[in-house]
């Protein structure tokens, strides 16, 4: 939060030395424009929450940040997204390496139909991050530990991941993302398929992860945004309406639409 309060320009899109930025980002699915001139800065080692009514483009925006929209047919993207000042849509950028730096956690827990161990080891293995079995063990353990899952699964690392509960599966997916040591973790409504207790655990985890990672989270729950994030961006109809410190957005929104959404008048 320190970085933001120094700048004292919380309502402005730009902050000092952002980890990631989006400039004039436009995206269309065929003839259907989903994002309009989005300008947003993501502050390092903070949680940025993207909120807004369904279909407002927040998930689409999130998926632009690690080029997951590349896999969809008929998408056109204009504008610029940078990571540490470099345009990630530059032709010279290797999308595979990019995604290793920007991890992603999805709405529905999607563990691979493999063992718990192999799920976490998947990223390090394909990226060749380890040279020995011991190193891999080490990474798997640390990642599970960081995702707060180690205690629950350490006796059954070789059992199938699909046997875990929904909340455990989601934390496994977080561990899987953490295992490749990303700098940024994108989370697309990570708790929407979880019960309140599992949600609380994941939220706690997000709060802890903040000390090591830059996190962007899409959420439908305003309470969740208020609980876990330091900055909040409000999207509406494909446009970024307002962005600022979470406290300010929730207590004193500048835009009428933000106020309306937060007080529950629409969305």
């Amino acid at each position: 939060m320190a970085a933001v309060s120094q700048s004292a320009m919380t309502a402005e899109p730009s902050v000092a030395s952002p980890k990631m930025t989006a400039r004039d980002l436009n995206l269309s699915y065929g003839d259907n424009q989903a994002l309009f001139d989005v300008n947003l800065d993501i502050v390092e080692r903070q949680v940025t929450a993207l909120i807004g009514p369904s279909g407002c483009g927040k998930s689409t925006f999130l998926r632009c940040m690690n080029r997951m929209n590349d896999t969809i047919d008929g998408v056109t993207i204009k504008g610029e997204v940078t990571l540490d000042g470099r345009d990630i849509y530059d032709k010279r950028i290797d999308v595979v390496q990019l995604r290793a730096r920007i991890g992603m956690v999805f709405q529905k827990p999607n563990p691979f139909p493999k063992t718990i161990y192999d799920n976490v080891a998947y990223g390090p293995r394909i990226h060749g991050l380890v040279n020995s079995r011991d190193e891999l063990d080490q990474i798997v353990m640390t990642s599970l530990e960081r995702a707060g899952l180690l205690k629950e699964v350490k006796d059954r690392l070789q059992s199938p991941a699909t046997g875990l509960s929904g909340g455990q599966q989601q934390r496994l997916c977080i561990a899987r993302a953490v295992a490749v040591s990303p700098e940024v973790i994108l989370m697309d409504e990570p708790c929407s398929a979880l019960d309140p207790i599992a949600t609380a655990k994941v939220e706690e985890l997000i709060d802890e992860l903040r000390s090591n990672y830059t996190i962007v989270i899409v959420t439908h729950s305003m309470q969740q945004a208020a609980r876990v994030s330091q900055r909040t961006a409000f999207f509406h109809l494909g446009k970024l309406v307002e962005v600022g410190e979470t406290d300010q957005i929730f207590t004193n929104p500048k835009d009428e639409r933000t106020k309306g959404y937060i007080t529950g008048r629409f969305g």
Binding site: N66, R99, M104, F106, F112, Y122, G123, V180
Partner: peptide, 23 residues
């Protein structure tokens, strides 16, 4: 979602097919 999960970790298409889809 499994493909997304694999791509999201930075796997290439053939890695995703070999390690996730095929198994």
């Amino acid at each position: 979602s499994l493909r997304d999960g694999s791509y999201g970790l930075g796997a290439t298409k053939s890695e995703t097919i070999r390690h996730v889809i095929f198994p």
